[in-house]
């Protein structure tokens, strides 16, 4: 099958994770993975980002597929249920807003910058080597630490489910995927009836 330029975006995802190890401020680039899918779904009513441009999905596909790091088993039924997918999206958003709140506290001067990356919302990993000061307010660095935590956590979860189930199992419960699908559903309400094949 013909390869397109966007089939290599996994390199971008991998580079992102590596750069964040050396300089945390690169974490800001991750906002692209948040805004582009939303812009595509809102403007065109499709999941074009998931379908074509998601570098993270491609990375899992590569590691689980070509590198054979996946058991290729079916994902448990509860993990693909709407309750879990929407519940995970909600949990993810709550954690995201908590991260924004922590950033705000640093901006407001109510708290000092914490040079840690929080893995799986609980494990605090020292990450001070990746901070070399900033030209801006320390709050910008706090956001970078928080955002990198979100990206690293989702990558780790994705890698675990990749190994246990199918390579792109993360796509089943990816909060961005769930959110863009909800936007598409809202934009194309009549589509529900047309696609029903059962």
């Amino acid at each position: 099958m013909k390869k397109h330029w966007y089939d290599y975006l996994w390199i971008f995802s991998l580079t992102y994770l590596i750069l964040g190890f050396f300089n945390i401020l690169f974490a800001w680039l991750g906002l692209l993975c948040f805004f582009i899918p939303l812009i595509i779904s809102v403007s065109s009513g499709t999941k074009g980002y998931c379908n074509r441009y998601c570098g993270r999905g491609q990375l899992f596909s590569l590691l689980g597929g070509r590198f054979g790091l996946s058991r290729r088993k079916d994902i448990p039924r509860w993990m693909k249920s709407k309750a879990f997918r929407y519940g995970f999206l909600l949990f993810f958003l709550v954690m995201f807003f908590q991260m924004l709140w922590n950033t705000y506290l640093v901006f407001a001067g109510a708290r000092d910058l914490r040079q840690v990356v929080t893995l799986l919302w609980t494990l605090k990993l020292p990450w001070h080597w990746a901070y070399h000061g900033t030209l801006f307010h320390p709050g910008t660095a706090q956001f970078a630490f928080g955002f990198y935590s979100v990206m690293l956590t989702s990558t780790v979860l994705g890698l675990i489910t990749m190994a246990l189930f199918k390579p792109r199992s993360w796509c089943v419960y990816c909060p961005m995927g769930t959110m863009t699908q909800l936007i598409c559903r809202a934009k194309n309400r009549e589509g529900d009836i047309v696609t029903d094949q059962r």
């Binding site: 998931c50 379908n51 699908q181």
Partner: peptide
């Protein structure tokens, strides 16, 4: 046949 209700539209 696609089980439309559980499809996440990922495009794999």
């Amino acid at each position: 046949y696609v089980g439309t209700d559980s499809c996440v539209a990922c495009g794999c």
